[in-house]
Design a protein around this nucleic acid. Structure first.
Lengths: 245, 245
DNA sequence: CGTTGTTTTGACACTAGTCAATGGGTGTGG
DNA sequence: CCACACCCATTGACTAGTGTCAAAACAACG
């Protein structure tokens, strides 16, 4: 750890517009880059941070992917979400200064480290950074609400489809294919995220394969008919003209 | 609406420390109070705002209670949360400037209206207001995560108990009894919030009554044995010494 | 006092969980 | 290079917990 890593630069970063710098002027981005620290890459299953530890930094995913989760008093685990490049982790810690969930790497992954104290100072100086922080916080709330709708009111099939659709969108936003991608998480992680058992995930995936909606090969997913997939979960997609909403 | 309501004052407000002014200096609180507007009280089932409409104001509950919910494309509803005095509503709209959920009054209720544009300006001037806003946003994320754990991994009985426990805590924080309170929401609303059917809510409440944990009389709830209730949902409560976690 | 909306209760069906066994990759060591 | 072990994923059989539907009881309101 004595080795000093190169200073990161947001202005060159391919995903800066999906990340904290969005909406900032070029000179503001440079100010932000000055406080960012690199961190050595994390290996699979390595913990980025864990619940109840003091939060000194927020983290942005630079490459790879992460899984956030909480546990109840009995040790029952709930996966809160998956983090892809450009996404901010640790926002739940702004309340008490301690992380309220834990985060592990799903594969070899790297992050940008954002010292919280300096980030706070910078927010006071740069209103546009402050607004972007609030937008990001607000986005997390909105997507958590969507997840609550999924967990509260959807069948196993709907959950599976919504999950695939969500990944498709997010990969698309990152410039990857929307119809072909590799899952970086285990079936168990998907199951836990969707409030199902891993057996149910398996069964749903095989059903969808047999129905010709997707093709599954281990972690590899290919969506054969994206519109069909959308139409199952959101009936309006199939007949956009007659859709009342 | 031509009638001008009296200018509200946060410094006199009984719940200001549970609300936005927490952590602000007295002169900062006064600056905040200047931008706050009163609004006529809302009647039961009256909509405060609805999804997809432009967000010009945030709202803080002054008295009464509210229910927030989202709907999917098929009109299936999920209750996102209940809002009690001191709590801020509309934070999900900071992302796009439009509300991403709808909010209705559960009883006759009043709110403080916070014009978003002026609140943003004030956040730039008052760092402590900015931090408090972020804390509140962060708190909503944390409690949404708890709700995801509940919706993803708990039995009907656990959900019911956690719900009662949550209300007990929140009423306690407001200075009310932690063991005796009136539900302002229907069974249907509780069911929808907990991802259950209203029949299941009824059955759980009768079971808990028969077990002597609570007494139910319509909307009135009396918790007979709070520790017993806690011990069912969090086994550690019963034997704090032998608890491993 | 009837009407309406809400809550409770019962009977039954069905989805998804659990348990257990099998299958398939991947990696390691002989 | 092959054999074995390990982990993960799949499949099957069975079960339990909730949802759904329908009816009745109850409270609130005009």
């Amino acid at each position: 750890m004595g080795l000093s890593l190169p200073q990161p630069s947001c202005s060159n970063c391919r995903i800066s517009d999906l990340c904290l710098p969005y909406g900032l002027h070029i000179n503001e981005v440079e100010q932000l880059a000055l406080i960012i620290k690199n961190k050595r890459p994390l290996r699979i299953d390595e913990l980025l941070y864990s619940r109840d530890t003091e939060c000194l930094n927020l983290y942005a995913v630079k490459s790879g992917s992460f899984r956030g989760f909480i546990t109840n008093t009995e040790g029952v685990e709930q996966t809160i979400g998956f983090y892809l490049p450009g996404e901010l982790m640790g926002l739940d810690a702004l309340l008490h200064g301690r992380f309220s969930c834990s985060v592990v790497a799903l594969e070899t992954s790297s992050v940008c480290e954002l010292p919280l104290a300096r980030l706070n100072e910078l927010c006071v100086e740069l209103p546009s950074l402050q607004y972007q922080m609030m937008r990001i916080l607000s986005k997390e709330i909105t997507s958590d609400h969507d997840q609550m709708l999924l967990l509260g009111r959807s069948s196993a099939k709907e959950r599976m489809l919504m999950f695939l659709l969500m990944l498709s969108k997010r990969y698309g936003a990152l410039g990857f294919s929307t119809t072909e991608f590799n899952l970086s998480m285990r079936r168990q992680d998907i199951a836990n995220f969707l409030g199902l058992s891993n057996e149910t995930i398996s069964r749903q995936l095989t059903e969808l394969s047999k129905a010709g909606v997707i093709a599954v090969k281990q972690r590899g997913i290919r969506i054969i008919d994206l519109n069909l997939l959308k139409s199952i979960v959101e009936p309006c997609y199939a007949h956009p003209i007659s859709c009342p909403a």
